[in-house]
């Protein structure tokens, strides 16, 4: 094993300290008894209690999850279709515009995406609420899904699809029975990415949300603007906890599956 130089050890230690200490501080201070976030006054879980009793936050959390699930599902369907077209369909009329429209939202500043969608919804007289946020989130996250899925589509063997067609599958059957199972991990990864992007989004949601629907980031932003509050620390801790445990579970599952597969392969060779 190569030994790491002292410089590398120091830069990794400092780097990861920089990345993680702010979050650790956030979590520690969520258990602070004092209302002042900067003064430690003993351990307490009272802010979690206040949070659970705060209906505005609970409502916003529910809206956020609803928007996240709906928009990431739509985005996955649309993004997978778009990726399939980009990778498998040769030239067709309007391809340049199509690929432009898929990549542009990735680099578009959020304020512009939000503003333009809001102006559209007003122009067609659509009331702002859950529906408009779902439409907005679907639009920008489908582009991320299509990038993730197309990288998988590029790398897999096309002759499998051709074989399915030769054996009498309709194109749709071929897609459903051959292509989809092979790209499934990328589709799932795309869904997860779209879901996180939706949960995380403040700017686009602020433009497209109406008084009837407030998402959690909007709620957090409006209370944080006035200053630090221990309730928000508690909420952040819950979110960080969910993400960390989700990522750990996902990595354990994939590790387990890789191990199972290589065991199977070994068994097949023996």
């Amino acid at each position: 094993m190569r030994r790491m130089s002292a410089f590398n050890v120091v830069s990794l230690t400092l780097g990861f300290a920089f990345l993680y200490i702010p979050m650790v501080i956030l979590v520690v201070y969520s258990f602070n008894a004092s209302k002042l976030v900067t003064v430690w006054a003993g351990f307490s879980t009272k802010w979690y209690g206040e949070l659970i009793r705060n209906e505005a936050f609970l409502d916003a959390a529910w809206v956020t999850v609803k928007v996240g699930v709906l928009s990431s599902t739509f985005a996955t369907v649309l993004g997978t279709m778009a990726a399939y077209v980009m990778v498998r369909r040769g030239s067709f009329r309007g391809r340049t515009l199509f690929s432009g429209m898929i990549y542009a939202p990735l680099v578009m500043p959020e304020v512009i995406t939000g503003l333009s969608l809001l102006l559209l919804f007003i122009a067609i007289g659509l009331d702002r609420g859950v529906l408009t946020i779902v439409l907005a989130h679907t639009t920008f996250s489908m582009c991320y899904v299509s990038v993730v899925v197309s990288s998988r589509l590029v790398s897999f063997d096309r002759s499998l699809e051709e074989a399915a067609l030769d054996l009498g599958c309709t194109p749709f059957q071929g897609f459903r029975l051959v292509t989809l199972p092979i790209i499934a991990p990328a589709v799932l990864a795309g869904w997860l990415l779209a879901f996180t992007l939706s949960l995380d989004d403040l700017v686009i949601a602020s433009f497209t949300a109406g008084p009837s629907a407030t998402t959690l980031p909007i709620k957090i932003f409006s209370s944080v603007r006035l200053g630090v509050s221990p309730e928000i620390n508690a909420l952040s801790t819950i979110i960080i906890g969910l993400v960390v445990s989700g990522v750990i579970v996902a990595s354990l599952v994939s590790k387990h599956r890789i191990a199972a597969r290589s065991a199977e392969e070994r068994a097949a060779i023996d």
């Binding site: 702010p22 956030l26 980031p217 944080v224 630090v228 979110i239 960080i240 960390v244």
Partner: peptide, 12 residues
Amino acid sequence: TSFLIRVYAWMG
């Protein structure tokens, strides 16, 4: 983890 939360962490 949330972008907003990571920015918020620095406020304190």
